[in-house]
Nucleic acid binder design. Structure first.
Lengths: 148, 148
DNA sequence: CGACAAGACTTGATTGGTTCCAAGAAAAGA
DNA sequence: TCTTTTCTTGGAACCAATCAAGTCTTGTCG
């Protein structure tokens, strides 16, 4: 089923349907996480026999442009990609290990997210990134604190 | 006066006082904007005779650690630094030219900014980045649309 | 004041992520 | 089938950032 959907989606988005693009999108759909380019390359190669890294970069750029995929780039990390359902969710990044999680968010509701004094800027998106510690790194911190 | 303040501030922050650090901080205080490392290097070299890029990176890291300076890194841009008053303001980035502006924000008030479902993450900061078009690029867009 | 140890700076090389280029081969869609 | 787009291989380049070894400075203590 997924393949048919993906083919149609690519076409609807005005993109040519290629095996590489479909594979990239399928990989991002299945792994409901945030993948770096090298991980995507790896996964795509598990489906297709051989894919150049270039093709993956190209496909990701096209998919991002078509808004089928979302590119995020937390400070200090390489670019990450995720399948995007068009919802307005945000991200939480672990300061220590860089793990990324999703945070659901009421769309466009927060007062801060419609800045009145934007200094003449025309705002079209508000991106929120939370910073903190993931569960695993919290454990490590506790251990360290206890033993110190 | 500034030099005295800066010296004291560095010392209070637990940092050794070096000419390079003082110069970096002074530059960021004067240029009330968001500067990239190469711009900072340039400005610092206008004050001191010769400074290595490394020293600037080191100084910025130390100042960021001490929270005298804030590091931001919008997707697609190199890292930017700004003197930080400890206030909780956010940034707006121009999609086309990368210009960065400040947006004042009511501290910690937005509902989104205290995520309930953080997936076990321990959140310590919410960073908001607005995306849009700066005034200059809006003008260009209008011209283009009109002539098209 | 003078010396010592930790910390900071300099130079030079190197990594990492990403982008770009070119030519030819393959595939998509009309 | 034909045209256009995309993919492939291979290379090169770019920029930001980091590492390493050695030298200099800071701040403190005698």
């Amino acid at each position: 089923m997924a393949d048919v959907d993906i083919t149609a989606e690519l076409r609807d988005a005005g993109l040519r349907v290629t095996a590489q693009r479909a594979a990239v999108l399928a990989v991002l759909r299945e792994h409901r996480g945030h993948l770096a380019v090298d991980q995507i390359v790896e996964q795509v190669r598990a489906r297709l026999h051989a894919v150049s890294a270039q093709a993956v970069y190209n496909a990701l750029a096209a998919l991002t442009e078509a808004e089928l995929v979302r590119r995020i780039e937390p400070a200090g990390s390489p670019a990450l990609f995720e399948a995007r359902a068009g919802d307005n969710h945000h991200h939480i990044v672990c300061r220590r290990c860089g793990a990324v999680g999703d945070v659901d968010c009421v769309t466009g509701s927060a007062p801060c997210l419609d800045p009145s004094n934007a200094g003449g800027f025309l705002v079209d998106e508000a991106e929120v990134t939370f910073w903190g510690l993931c569960p695993a790194c919290q454990k490590k911190s506790n251990k360290r604190a206890r033993s110190a």
